[in-house]
């Protein structure tokens, strides 16, 4: 008995050790650029190792005075947020139809939708550029919104669909005998029951959209429509040479919203909400 307990304790320790070192490996770059962002420019480029860094907010002051970070953040938030809303409006009814209605070619359509995700984006980059040029949407966050929405729509549809498939059909049957029509059922039963799935899909779409680079670079020809991802790539510190601490700080600022989204998604990844609906 005593031996068993000891060995269980040992294996727990081992588990923590392995997971802990892995987490450290993953976190190290983040910690590293975090510290760079908070140190003076001169200290970063010295060849000697430094054990006790001096802290400074130089980078922060530089950014605030020199760089329209508020504009880029606003562009990111609007384009990403708008695209996610468009995705949800289109994907929820589509997912419901794919999950529930029995129609000819349902599986095929589901596959076509997903297949748009399998194409390399570069293939359509040039046509998309001309398309947006001809409708006068270059250099506009509306264009970015549409493109992000299009990129993520298939994925969002599929994630939501898979959650909807998990909702017991008896729930809808009950709602129908209780006198609810299709839209009511979707709005009052299905959407609340698969809310964790909808949130998960929205967060994943937002993360993809925040990090989208290729199309943003293509569409946003001036910095007026830059989002954080493109602005970050273009940011080197300008006329003063490469300012590493400011770059690190910008990266960090770009990273924080994604981090928040990931924390959100974690909370909702548990599929607890349909619990209690049925016997099992």
């Amino acid at each position: 008995m005593a031996r068993m307990r000891k060995s269980r304790g040992e294996s727990l320790l081992l588990r923590y050790l392995v997971l802990g070192s892995w987490a450290l490996v993953c976190l190290l770059p983040i910690l590293w650029f975090g510290t760079i962002a908070l140190r003076p420019r001169t200290e970063i480029v010295t060849p000697q190792p430094i054990y006790w860094p001096t802290w400074s907010l130089d980078a922060w002051h530089l950014l605030m005075s020199d760089w329209p970070i508020a504009l880029y953040l606003r562009n990111s938030v609007l384009a990403v947020g708008g695209s996610v809303i468009i995705d949800l409006i289109l994907a929820i009814p589509a997912a419901y139809a794919l999950a529930r209605y029995d129609f000819k070619g349902r599986e095929d359509i589901g596959f076509y939708i997903l297949s748009t995700r399998m194409m390399a984006p570069a293939i359509v980059a040039v046509p998309i550029f001309f398309l947006f040029k001809s409708v006068g949407l270059l250099d506009s966050i509306w264009a970015l919104m549409l493109i992000y929405a299009a990129i993520n729509l298939s994925l969002v549809t599929w994630i939501i669909r898979s959650y909807m498939l998990d909702i017991p059909k008896e729930l809808e049957d009950a709602a129908r005998t209780d006198g609810a029509g299709d839209l009511r059922i979707l709005w009052e039963i299905i959407i609340p029951a698969c809310l964790p799935g909808i949130i998960t899909a929205a967060v994943i779409a937002a993360i993809f959209a925040i990090n989208e680079f290729l199309f943003t670079l293509l569409i946003a020809s001036t910095s007026g429509a830059y989002t954080m991802s493109v602005a970050l790539a273009n940011f080197t510190g300008g006329s003063d040479g490469v300012i590493y601490n400011a770059i690190a700080l910008v990266s960090f600022i770009a990273f924080v919203p994604v981090l928040i989204l990931v924390i959100l998604i974690q909370k909702h990844l548990s599929r607890g909400l349909t619990m209690g609906a049925v016997k099992g």
Partner: peptide, 27 residues
């Protein structure tokens, strides 16, 4: 089904998980 005016107790209960008991009964 919605126009047949029957009320059914389902073998698996089929309670609406996002609603309270009160809201379920009122639905």
């Amino acid at each position: 089904a919605r126009d047949r005016d029957v009320a059914m107790v389902f073998q698996g209960y089929a309670l609406y998980p996002n609603m309270t008991v009160y809201e379920n009964i009122r639905f």
